[in-house]
Amino acid sequence: MISPQRVSAIATNTVREAIRNKVLYVLLFFALVLISTGVLLSTLSYVERDRILQDVGIAAIRFFGAAMAIFLGVGLIHKEVDRRTIYTVLSKPLSRSEFLLGKYLGLVATLWLQMAVMGVGFAVTSWLSEAPLDAGHAYAIGLAGMEAALLAAVATMFSSFSTPLLSALFSVGIYLVGHLTRDLRELGAASGSEGTATVTSLLHRVLPDLESLNLSIQAVHGLPIAPAEVAFAVLYAVGYSAALLVFATILFQRRDFR
C-alpha cells in the first residue's frame, strides 16, 4: 500500500531542502564550535581532562540533535501548508500517510546527517587530545540519534494538527519531562504512597523515557555497555516513534487544507 518510490521522493526532497538552507549550516557550525571548546575546557583542568572534553562533546551532540529535531519538526508540515506546496503534492496519487512518512524520514535523514558530522567532529577532537575512543562513544552518539528521531516524531505529531509555536512548546515540554520520568518514578516509588507510585509509573510508561536513550555517562567513564541494552533502546525509540506517526497520520487524514 505504501509505495517506497513515492515516500523516498518526498524524503529526498525534504533532505535537499534542508541541505540548501543556510540556517542549518550556522547551527552545525555552532555545534562544532561547542564540541571543540571541550578541548579548551579540558586544558584548564589536570584531572579528568578526557572526561570533561567528552562530556561536553556528547552533551553538545545530544542537545543540538534534540534542538534541531524540534526546530525542524514543528515546521515540517506547517511550512508545506503555509506555502501551499502541499496542494500540488497531495493532488498526485500519493496518500497522506505516504506524505507524512516521507516528510518524517527526510527529517530524520537530515538530523542524522548533521549528527554524523558532529560525531566526526567529536572523534577528531578526541583523537587530537588523545582521549580514549571506543564502541561506548559510538553507542552513545547513536542513541542520541535515536533520541533526535523520537523527538522529531513528537514534533511532527504536534505539527500535524497544531501551529508551529504551540507544537514547539508541547515538544519542548515532552523533551524536558521525558528526561525526568525515570526520576519521577523512583521518587514516586520511594514516596510510600500507593497513588503517587501508580501515577508516576504510569507517566513513565506513557511519556517517552528519553533517559533510556542516554548513555553518555557510561561512555565517558568507560563503563561496560551491553549491546542488548542498546538494541532494546533502539527498539524502544523506533516503536515509540512509529506509534506517534500512526497517531499523527490519523490526525492528518482529517485535516482540511485551505
Partner: peptide, 13 residues
C-alpha cells in the same frame, strides 16, 4: 492533473 490557484512551489529546486 491539478494546478492550484496562485501556485507556489519548492523554490529551492
Amino acid at each position: 492533473g491539478f494546478l492550484p490557484e496562485n501556485p507556489w512551489f519548492y523554490d529551492h529546486l
